[in-house]
């Protein structure tokens, strides 16, 4: 790129538009790997707990849920540290905010349900997870993600009321796969 090149008005506007869009694509593609990280972690954790609970009959395996943020947050921080220095734009900031709020709700409510006040935590978490996924779709202007989030929230809530015990965990496996797909969609959408 040359600093002294004479540009026409058309070329200048095109340059502005291209630079802006390229940067936007890079930033959103950079966010995709975090969706994939949490999607993979959720899929593996929920499946592991489901299998352990199913074959041993011990619901205490649910304590393994607390391992997920314990592994996920340091891993995400590590990925950010060695990552290319990508800036944040309005969309990536809002995406981060939505999922941080979801994480805070999910961890706090799970801890309250386990240690203080018993509640149907699967029902609550699947609804807010569907909502967070829906909001991500709105921010990314992506209808499949919006619909996926809606189906996860509403379908998951119905499923959580209909099935009992270990089978409920399969909702989160589905949620994890949905997050993985969201990450892949973002990678492709902003290629």
């Amino acid at each position: 790129m040359e600093q002294n090149k004479e540009m026409t008005a058309q070329e200048s506007l095109q340059l502005i538009s291209e630079s802006f869009n390229k940067s936007r694509k890079d930033i959103l593609r950079g966010s995709a790997k975090y969706f994939m990280l949490w999607g993979a972690l959720l899929t593996v954790t929920s499946l592991a707990i489901y299998l352990l609970w199913h074959f041993t009959g011990k619901p205490q395996w649910n304590f393994l849920w607390f391992a997920m943020p314990a592994i996920g947050y340091p891993l995400a921080a590590l990925m950010g540290k060695y990552d290319e220095a990508l800036p944040q734009n309005e969309v990536s900031k809002m995406l981060t905010g939505v999922w941080r709020v979801f994480g805070a709700f999910a961890i706090t409510l799970s801890a309250i349900a386990v240690f203080l006040v018993p509640m149907h935590v699967t029902l609550i978490i699947v609804i807010i997870m569907g909502l967070a996924e829906c909001m991500s779709g709105v921010l990314l202007k992506n209808w499949p993600i919006i619909i996926g989030g809606f189906l996860l929230g509403v379908g998951g809530a119905v499923f959580a009321m209909l099935v009992k015990n270990d089978a409920q965990l399969l909702i989160f496996t589905l949620g994890g796969v949905l997050l993985l797909i969201t990450g892949l969609v973002m990678k492709l959408q902003y290629k």
């Binding site: 790129m1 040359e2 600093q3 090149k5 200048s12 390229k22 940067s23 734009n89």
Partner: peptide, 28 residues
């Protein structure tokens, strides 16, 4: 009205802040 300065400003218009290395990569 200079190609490189305009590209830098266009990138910065869409983000809070950007690293020098990022601007270098984006502008080439």
């Amino acid at each position: 009205h200079s190609e490189l300065r305009l590209a830098v400003m266009s990138i910065l218009a869409g983000v809070d802040e950007a690293d020098f290395t990022y601007l270098k990569k984006q502008t080439g």
